[in-house]
Simulated assay, not measured.
Amino acid sequence: MQISGNTIFIPGGTSGIGLALALALRDKGNTVIVGGRRTELLERIAAENPGIDTVTIDTTDPASIQAAAGQVIARHPELNVLIAMAGIMRVEDWRKPESFLAAAEEVVTTNLLGPIRLIAAFIEHLQTRPDATIVTVSSGLAFTPLKITPSYNASKAAIHMLSETLRLQLDGTSVRVMELVPPSVRTTLLPGQETNEHAMPLEEYIAETMELLESRPDAKEIQVERVKFLRYSEVRGEYDEVVAILNSTDPHASGA
């Protein structure tokens, strides 16, 4: 993906990594459309950030995805980048079905079905563009699990393998697949994470990510240094040790 000159849709871009990335990409000379569920929040983002367009979308609702896709393509027919950013994280105790099932279903619907439905809604249009990119968002926890978030880990592992497979299927088309692999970042993904000293500061994550996007436009994965502790634990032959470290410390430590 080239760092400038794109038209980019970021559903799930109203806060955290999504919004910070949207603003950074706008500042690099891209047209950016942010999607989210809350109309009043979208209106405030548009008012406070000139150059950012917005569209209402609920990525857990197939009809909402289809309607939003129609609006985005109609208003921005030059759209060539989809960043499937929307995601949630829930603490689950699988020893008690009544305490985890609803949360697990919510995580899978948002983190896995959401991106699948988004890609389905945009893939035909993206293939008409001469240089298009689908950006998925996995996690370091796709590769080394945090015991308190089973469904999140599983959903992000699925996103990783989906990305790998889509890249094979789309080979020979104009559409590339790029995967963002974030570590724990100071956002509101989990309560208290935005102030946790072990999580990576948001501005540092965005700065390093933008540098990687600019220097490696053909990269398959965008991995900041902080996430490699988890991403390559098994490759290094340290999987069991890293799992033990990750799950014996603060949930946001060690690049989770």
Rank of each mutant, 00 (worst) to 15 (best):
Q2G: 05
F9R: 00
I10M: 04
T14P: 11
G16D: 04
I17A: 09
A22W: 07
D27G: 12
V32Y: 12
I33H: 00
V34S: 10
G35T: 07
G36M: 02
T39H: 14
I45H: 13
A46Y: 13
G51I: 03
T60N: 15
S64P: 05
I73C: 09
A74H: 14
H76S: 10
P77K: 12
E78A: 12
I83W: 04
A86T: 10
G87M: 03
M89E: 11
K96S: 13
F100K: 05
A103S: 13
A104K: 00
E106K: 09
E106S: 14
L112A: 11
L113S: 12
L113Q: 12
L113A: 08
G114T: 02
I116H: 14
I116V: 15
H125A: 05
D131F: 01
V135R: 02
V137S: 08
A142I: 01
L146C: 01
S151Q: 02
N153M: 07
H160I: 01
M161Y: 13
M161D: 07
M161V: 08
T165P: 00
L166F: 11
R167Q: 05
Q169V: 10
G172S: 09
R176A: 10
V177C: 06
L180K: 03
R186E: 07
L189T: 07
P191E: 15
G192R: 08
L202C: 05
E204I: 01
I206L: 00
T209L: 09
E211L: 01
S215Q: 11
D218F: 01
E221M: 05
V224W: 00
E225A: 12
V227K: 05
K228R: 09
E234Y: 11
V235H: 13
E238G: 08
D240Y: 10
D240F: 13
V242W: 02
A244D: 10
L246P: 03
P251R: 03
H252A: 10
G255D: 09
